[in-house]
Design a protein around this nucleic acid. Structure first.
Lengths: 208, 208
DNA sequence: TAAGATACATACCATTTGGTATGTTTTACG
DNA sequence: CGTAAAACATACCAAATGGTATGTATCTTA
């Protein structure tokens, strides 16, 4: 039986925490659960994290970095038209919904629901995480608005609406045990954008 | 010191649970916490509820009934035009956002995030709760669509979008410690509806 | 190569957890 | 009135909880 190589305990714990928090939430996941899932001992846990709350902050930050890198690295960022990039981003988000629900649910969104009062540090990390996700779309939206201004609409405001659709979609998907409402939320968001920007769907390229 | 009158322990526990779950989540709230907040002993708790999970199901159901009654009783339901009722409902939801965040956050939405895998009964109750909320708007939306059909749009689908906006708005509000993103989500939703139904905002009656 | 320093593992602890066993008091009702 | 069943309260328990104390192996670096 291969011992877990030295120096990886922290990464293993962050990975396990990402998984378990998405399944059971922060309070619903014990330190022992984390250690067992990561295949490390409690000594390793408290060597790397001062407390469970400290781990919570670290996971949310780690989650922010990994997901941010994933979206930043994607091919659609090369599209010339900014609004095309926005729609491609929506396509990407829709494509993620084929995975099991825990795998597309959001660590930051789940954590902040339970910890926004009890663990301010986690709340702040979650806030930064959601803002980071918004910033990605906001950049494309700002360019699109520069090319085609829309009255009373800012890129930040629309970016926040994206996050609302993401987070709300996850809640509905969990409740219904079905990703359909999340997908549908993105469809409505796309339709809203097409109405705002005056760009009707091209036949065959809209929601498949 | 007045002893808590007989026969009210269950109601007190449901009230305390509603409050505490919105603040700390389901797993983050202990049975002792509940009893202390309700001013009741553990004996009373386990007399009325077989387990903590059982209490969870009961709170979500209780929450569904009370909020459902609140919306059903509201004055705007008497407006003649169904789309006016939809916008009035949005106004009502916006007006709720002046309360502290825990008081407008959703018991069902918060609970289902952490329990959708571990407690199927709670998940089902939360699903029913969210569906109940949707059904309310859906009725008005169906009438509005009957008067003014919109291509590829159903009342159910739009009602789900309302829930997505509600739940997503709560998540963002918690993360930012500010109800503004929730309000903004409703503003966008209203704008989307006005675009779909071809009813521009009347000067002075739109979002204040 | 000696010597910290880092990265773990093991064993343990006080407290909290959900839950139970067993009372006592109040109410419904024949 | 008597009696049974609710509606609680009190006391208790085994397990799980977050956290600590202390040990040991590995790595770095002078």
């Amino acid at each position: 039986m291969t011992r877990t190589p030295r120096g990886e305990a922290r990464a293993l714990l962050l990975g396990a925490a990402t998984d378990l928090i998405r399944r059971r939430g922060f309070a619903g996941t014990s330190v022992d659960d984390l250690c067992a899932a990561a295949g490390v001992t409690k000594g390793a846990f408290f060597h790397h994290f001062a407390s469970k709350a400290d781990l919570g902050v670290a996971v949310v930050r780690h989650w922010t970095e990994t997901t941010g890198a994933m979206f930043a690295a994607h091919a659609y960022n090369a599209k010339p038209d900014p609004l095309d990039r926005v729609f491609a981003y929506l396509d990407l988000r829709r494509s993620l919904l084929v995975m099991p629900i825990p795998e597309f649910s959001c660590v930051a969104g789940t954590s902040v629901q339970e910890t926004f009062l009890s663990h301010p540090a986690i709340r702040l990390a979650a806030d930064a995480s959601l803002r980071s996700g918004m910033a990605h779309v906001e950049a494309h939206l700002a360019e699109a608005l520069a090319l085609h201004p829309v009255a009373d609409i800012t890129a930040e405001s629309l970016a926040r609406l994206f996050q609302v659709a993401v987070q709300g979609g996850i809640v509905l998907a969990k409740a219904q045990d079905d990703p359909a409402p999340a997908r549908e939320a993105f469809d409505h968001l796309e339709r809203y954008l097409r109405l705002l920007f005056g760009r009707p769907a091209t036949r065959g390229q809209d929601s498949a």
